[in-house]
């Protein structure tokens, strides 16, 4: 269980805005092993999102090396990166990013459409399985606007699972959700992790970070510190403690 999934060495990212150069990441070294559940934390502008985008092969680093499951992404062209995203990565966005007017099932099928090895029948079976895994076995043909925020995020999680990635990357996946729904989503993530999925989760909320096993805290484009989480939250227990009639959701939302 200690196979290295992500290995980052001397990773840099700079943006040029006019004359100014913004250093989003300055020489970051990091390692994430199989089965880990890591929170990348930090304030706005600390570089945590940039880090996740590079890990997700959505953005290119300015310098340094990034090995994903033994493949050095610096040596890959755009098409190969797309292939990598298709086969090894699952990405979850804060704003779900589901295709509008498209059923949950079709949204989940989307990554498999870009994998020509998967035939139509298998595509559908895998999408159904993924939706059942996230607890949406009865919502196959609902459109995103017929689903609640939590359900939409579950569809997005199913979409990230459907290609059986080596790592799931989540960007503020609970940022748009109320407390109870956030906990429910965290429960799902914990369950996935218990089943062996490696998950990297970006958040700025310390409460949410306590659901993970390890926290990496970014500051000004560097890793400030890393901590192993003690007294890790169990989402299932926390949900049980929430009042049954959820008036508090209004207050804490």
């Amino acid at each position: 269980m200690d196979h290295v999934i992500i290995k980052v060495e001397g990773l840099r990212k700079e943006y040029h805005i006019g004359e100014m150069t913004v250093h989003a990441l300055r020489k970051v070294d990091m390692e994430i092993r199989q089965g880990e559940f890591v929170a990348i934390m930090g304030a706005s502008g600390s570089g945590k999102s940039t880090m996740l985008n590079i890990l997700g092969c959505l953005d290119k680093p300015s310098g340094g090396d990034y090995m994903l499951d033994g493949v050095n992404m610096r040596k890959l062209n755009k098409n190969q990166l797309a292939g990598l995203r298709n086969s090894k990565l699952g990405f979850i966005f804060q704003s779900y990013n589901l295709l509008p007017r498209t059923t949950a099932l079709e949204n989940v099928e989307l990554p498999l459409y870009y994998n020509s090895k998967v035939k139509a029948k298998e595509r559908k079976e895998r999408a159904i399985h993924a939706l059942e895994q996230v607890g949406l076995g009865d919502r196959f043909h609902h459109m995103p606007n017929q689903l609640s925020g939590g359900q939409q995020q579950r569809v997005a999680i199913a979409r990230s699972l459907v290609n059986d990635p080596v790592v799931i990357l989540a960007d503020e996946a609970t940022g748009n959700l109320d407390t109870r729904t956030s906990y429910e989503i965290m429960e799902l993530f914990q369950k996935l992790n218990d089943n062996g999925k490696t998950i990297v989760f970006v958040t700025h909320e310390p409460d949410i970070a306590r659901f993970m096993k390890r926290n990496i805290i970014f500051r000004d484009g560097r890793i400030q510190r890393e901590v192993a989480v003690e007294n890790r939250f169990s989402a299932t227990e926390l949900i049980a403690k929430l009042p049954k009639e959820d008036d508090t959701d209004f207050l804490s939302a």
């Binding site: 997700g56 959505l58 755009k78 098409n79 797309a82 292939g83 995203r85 298709n86 086969s87 990405f91 990013n97 295709l99 989307l110 990554p111 870009y114 994998n115 979409r159 290609n163």
Partner: peptide, 16 residues
């Protein structure tokens, strides 16, 4: 464009 970005993020290549 956003839809295009999403399609790329799940593995769609430019040519796709």
């Amino acid at each position: 464009t956003k839809e295009i970005g999403l399609r790329m993020s799940v593995g769609g290549r430019g040519n796709d």
